[in-house]
Each structure stands twice: as C-alpha cells, then as structure tokens.
Design a binder for these strands. Structure first.
Lengths: 214, 214
DNA sequence: TTTGACAAACCGACCGGTCGGTATGTAGGT
DNA sequence: ACCTACATACCGACCGGTCGGTTTGTCAAA
C-alpha cells in the first residue's frame, strides 16, 4: 500500500504558506497600493521572512500579479453565487450589486483587485494580463442585460455592451469615491443611487411590452 | 515709496521656478502616482536640484498637496469656461463632459488630481483637504441639474444630488478604465456612452412638460 | 525499522541603490 | 549688508533582491 491518501497535512505546507502570503498581500496592496506596500511591509505583515517570500514568488511584481489573479477569482465566486436560474435579469443585476457591496464591506482586501489593476496597468507590458479582468465583468453584465431585454424588462434600443461598460466604470468610480469620502461607509448608498438612475433609463415602462420606454 | 511696482523680471524668478516644479510634479504624479513618483524622479524631471525643491516646498507631501490644488484650479477653469449663460442646462452638461475629455487628451497631467486625491486620501489626516475637491464637482453638477429641472428638460422626480454624485463617480471610473484598457484613447467614447445612458433616464420625454417621463 | 540521500520549504544576513530630508555654501539682486 | 533663490554634499533608513545555510518532509534501499 503506497498508502496514497495519507499525504495530508505535510505536503501542502507550502501551499498553506503560499495562501497565507497571498492573503496578507491582498490586504496590504488593498490598503497601500502596489508602490505603497513595500516588500518589508509584506514580510512583516505575515510572520514570515524574505526568504520564504522569494521562494514562492520570484519578485514583488509576480507576487502582485498572483495576488491580483487570486482575488479576482474570489470576486467571480461572490458574484456567481448570487445567480439563481429562476431570477429575472434585472433582479440579478441588483443582487450582484448588493453582493459586491457586501464583499467590499466585509473584506478590506477586496479593493486590491482594482488598485493593482490600475497601478500595474500603468506599465503597458502588464496590460495584456490585467485588462481581461475588466472584460470579464463587462461581458458578464452585458449578457445579463441582453437577457433582461429578452425578458422584456430592459429596453431593446439600448446597447447592452454600453450599459455594461458604463456599469463597470461607474462601480469602480463609486468604490473609489466612497473610500476617500467616508472610508467606504456610504458605498452601498452610492451604489444603489447609481443602479436606480441607471434603471430609470434602461428599464421598460411598466405595463409596456418592451422596446422603448415611450 | 519703497518703489513697489517695478520689481518685474527678478522678483518673480522664484514664482517661475515654483510654477515649473508644479508642472513637472503634475506630470509625474499623473503618470506614476504619489508613492510611485519619487522625489529623485521629480528633481531629475525638472532640471533642478533638491535644494530648489525644498526651498519652495517643505516636504514631498506638501508638494503633492500644492500640485493637487494647482491642477484642480485648472480643471475648474476648463469647466467654467464652457459655461455660457444662454446655454440650456442639459447642453452645458454635455459641453462640460466634452471639455474635460479634451483636457484629458491634451494634458497628461490632468489625471494627477484624481490620482493624488485617492492616493493621499488613504491617509485619513489628509481627507479634509482632499474631499472638498469631490464636493465642488458634485455641487456644481447638482446645481446645473436643478436648473435643467427648472427648464423642463430634466425630470423633476430625480434627485439632482444623486445624479451629481453618480456622474462624478462614473467620470472617475471611466477615466481610470479608459487609461488602463487603451491608454486613454477611448475615453471620449466611454464618456459619451455614459452621458447617453444617464440622459436616457433623467431627461423628460419629448413633448411633455416635465415632471416624470411617463 | 532504521537510515541516508535528496528535495522542498524556510531563514536571516547581506547587497548596492534609492528613499525623503537636512545642513551648509554661495551667487546675485536690492 | 542682507535676503532670496538656488546648488551641493551628505544623512540614516529603507528599498527590492540575492544567497548560503538550516530545517522539514519524502522516499527508497538496506
């Protein structure tokens, strides 16, 4: 019996450390940004040493990229969890917005994705790695908007892609503004304000069959 | 009788230097952010020396704050220049958006205002200095929206303040996204997309007297 | 079952360079 | 002479990164 199973608790020690490093990095990058969070900060923040860091990641930049990818996955998880097939598209959009607000309120590290995206994106070399992050959201939202059009809740004469692009950008801006004016306290209020105004324009008028609000 | 007037050409040499430093700082802060632009970068970027910098500004932070304030004034100038009393409010909003797009396209340093606002705003101590920047825009836009309501072009049942808050946040997000996905090339397209969708919701329906679109 | 070879995981001292900041010097106008 | 407006030299702390060494876990031969 080459036992097989056993290997638990030992072989994945490295994975655990890697995970820990990623979590700490996400928090610090979210708080201080890429340039603002020094390697020493990261080392001190975890209980580890430089050697451990550089064993798992070849450079600070690579660590940031890995952190970015890791946290992006969490965002995708959070958002896809609210998708119930029975839900109407317009309700799903609202639920998604609520979910990301919850996420931002409970996890300080949530903001690291957008911060890293924009700070690292300054370097044109890294853009191909970063921009898909935005595309994913834009495409996801666009597809839901199109479904909303099929369901008759969203006007047919609006460009689903444009709605998606605007929504993503607005969310990012709302997040930034809320952070600086209130430390994130009024994030939810501002986000709901946006959704309300957006829906004012794209929703079909009650009682109509869809295809323009007048 | 202490001469007074004459002093031209000599006394304002310092002002010129200060101006030059501010311009260089604006460009570098816009490109690299506060933490990313080192003092040495700033010194090297201008043809000057550290001594000159520290004569005019007591610290890097003070320089950043001064740069922020200086560039913010330019934004106010750019926007207020498009305001003609004869213009209808809705047209003025569109003109303002066009003006800020132009500004961002021609002046790379334009972005330093928002970057500094958010990066320095991380420090709660500086928020009281920074947040008025956002309030100014929100209040300016809100007042124009209210005028649009008086003129019957904007629905009475929308909250002008909310429209303003959303617009400012959306603009900031649009600017960020456009920078990272295209280096700013599609800023105008994305900005117009936003205005279109916004207007879809807040504008009164043609032929109606104003006060709700249905 | 012990043992020993080997690799993965981690440590921490150390590197050259750069950070923001200061102290001192000095040219030139008034 | 004195003050403004710079230049220069220098500081300690810290930057991201390297490296030789130690520990920890894996597996196979004895």
């Amino acid at each position: 019996m080459p036992s097989r199973a056993s290997s638990a608790g030992a072989l994945d020690r490295g994975d655990q450390t890697r995970r820990h490093i990623l979590d700490v990095a996400a928090r610090l990058f979210a708080e201080k940004g890429y340039a603002g969070a020094s390697f020493s900060d990261l080392v001190a923040g975890s209980g580890l040493t430089k050697g451990a860091f550089y064993f798992h990641f070849p450079s600070k930049e690579a660590l940031a990229l890995a952190t970015f990818a890791d946290q992006q996955e969490r965002w995708v998880d959070v958002v896809s969890r609210v998708a119930e097939p029975s839900m109407k598209a317009v309700d799903q959009l609202a639920a998604m917005l609520k979910a990301v607000c919850d996420f931002c309120e409970t996890e300080v590290s949530a903001r690291c994705v957008s911060r890293l995206c924009f700070e690292l994106g300054e370097e044109p070399r890294l853009r191909p790695t970063l921009t898909p992050y935005l595309s994913i959201w834009e495409e996801l939202i666009a597809s839901i908007v199109r479904r909303g059009q099929d369901e008759g809740d969203i006007r047919d004469d609006v460009d689903a892609g444009a709605v998606a692009r605007v929504s993503v950008a607005a969310w990012i801006g709302v997040n930034d503004v809320a952070t600086v004016v209130s430390g994130g306290a009024d994030l939810r209020a501002r986000a709901e304000e946006f959704l309300e105004i957006l829906m004012l324009g794209v929703r079909t008028v009650d009682g109509e069959t869809g295809g323009g609000s007048r």
